[in-house]
Design a protein around this nucleic acid. Structure first.
Lengths: 236, 236
DNA sequence: ACCGTCAATGGAACGTCGTACCGGAGGGGG
DNA sequence: CCCCCTCCGGTACGACGTTCCATTGACGGT
């Protein structure tokens, strides 16, 4: 209600004061990461992110070409959280360590796995991780011609794992009659009991195990098998 | 310009004739699948799908609760294309066969992998596949307590594989200066050459192999290692 | 033959999204 | 002092998913 000292047309609302310090691409990316953490990927819109940062949506476009590019940057920023061992130990152990780290970070922002799965991870911070992983393979003595394949294998497995955990959190009934979407393991059990056990005997029989399979244990289990399978290629 | 035989207010445009046969949920789902195949996932909107079917967007909502539910149904429909061996052969071979089939089908609709990764696959047709896979594990003699884990492992790997292939098709430069998105392996090579080889020596050295890694071979390679790792658990 | 019922359709509209356009504000160098 | 360059943000456009509702027409009962 009070006019500012400067004389001006009284009916004009005061413009918000100029931003103390112009915002930077980095600020935007970091803001997006924390927004992602708090509200999830599908709630992240340019407008909401902007108001989270105290700006207008269109202002973001000065620093960032497109939402897609922003997401690339966000993903890379997240990969920056992956911490790599300072000193090199036994190669295989280091390999395990870095895979666990990636898994840990991606789980911290579950949506990040979706990002990682939908776009290649070639930002500078992500490359840091790739570089380290390849190095571990080399130090391990893994044959060079096969490293690309082996790398794909473990990368697939790690990202895919987080992804599937994520999707299992929201179990959707997709049979022809029901359309509900629900979220916990009880509903899963309920779903299992609802379907004809003569048609899916194995599934019904094993469903108990399938339901209570622990994510971390499952990752560990798979990683063990996977590395065991790989180590047969090692030059003896 | 011509009025129809029925007398009616001449200025009223002729309503489109009533649909010869009311459309069904199945028609919609199948229409969505072919639309997906032709135009891709991100072009699939309710309006476009509707006009592809010769209806109005809002008419779809009589048969389907929500777009999300429709996607569930679409995914399950796609899983229906997975053909299972008629007669059971050697268990391990059957296991390989079904995984290859899933991979084949998911690759046919590359977007389907994204769907499969973002929602659990528990529709009736998908369950058919799960059921068969579990059966193969059992016949193989795999210890029951571990089947859930082993199943997760191979499922992750198969879906994750298609997903990563898909994402590698569009290599995005995500370093701080460029923002282009491009598509072929040449651009990839160009990207590799643009980055400091002293910072990422392994990556640069191996990039040739990483680039020309063939998807099918890569899948085969990983599958071999993976099953090798798993078969150590077999009751001898 | 009429009528009422009711599954099925589609137009209008709401709120949201990504983004283009552009008029300006502020500050620094001539 | 003025101009220019950087940065901001209001307005607006077209597309989206979805809700609401008026309307249609086929069918079963009388």
């Amino acid at each position: 209600m009070d006019g500012r000292t400067k004389v001006s047309a009284a009916w004009v609302a005061d413009k918000p004061p100029r931003r103390q310090q112009p915002l930077s691409r980095e600020q935007i990316v970091r803001g997006a990461v924390t927004y992602l953490e708090q509200h999830g990927l599908e709630d992240l819109s340019m407008r909401k992110l902007a108001s989270h940062l105290g700006t207008a949506a269109t202002s973001l476009y000065w620093h960032v070409a497109t939402k897609d590019q922003l997401l690339d940057l966000v993903l890379d920023e997240i990969f920056g959280e992956v911490s790599l061992p300072e000193e090199e130990g036994e190669a295989l152990a280091d390999l395990r360590r870095v895979l666990h780290e990636v898994r840990r970070v991606l789980s911290r922002y579950p949506e990040a796995a979706r990002l990682a799965a939908s776009r290649p991870t070639l930002g500078p911070r992500a490359l840091r991780v790739v570089e380290y992983t390849l190095g571990a393979f080399l130090r391990w003595g893994y044959p060079e011609e096969s490293i690309a394949y082996a790398y794909n294998l473990v990368a697939n497995y790690t990202i895919g794992g987080v992804l599937v955990e994520l999707s299992r959190q929201r179990v959707a009934g997709a049979d022809s009659t029901t359309d509900g979407v629900s979220e916990d393991a009880d509903t899963m059990r309920e779903f299992v009991e609802s379907l004809p056990s003569e048609e899916f005997p194995n599934f019904v029989r094993l469903s108990g195990l399938l339901v209570k399979a622990n994510d971390d244990e499952s990752f560990e289990f798979g990683l063990d098998r996977l590395l065991a399978g790989i180590s047969n290629d090692l030059a003896k």
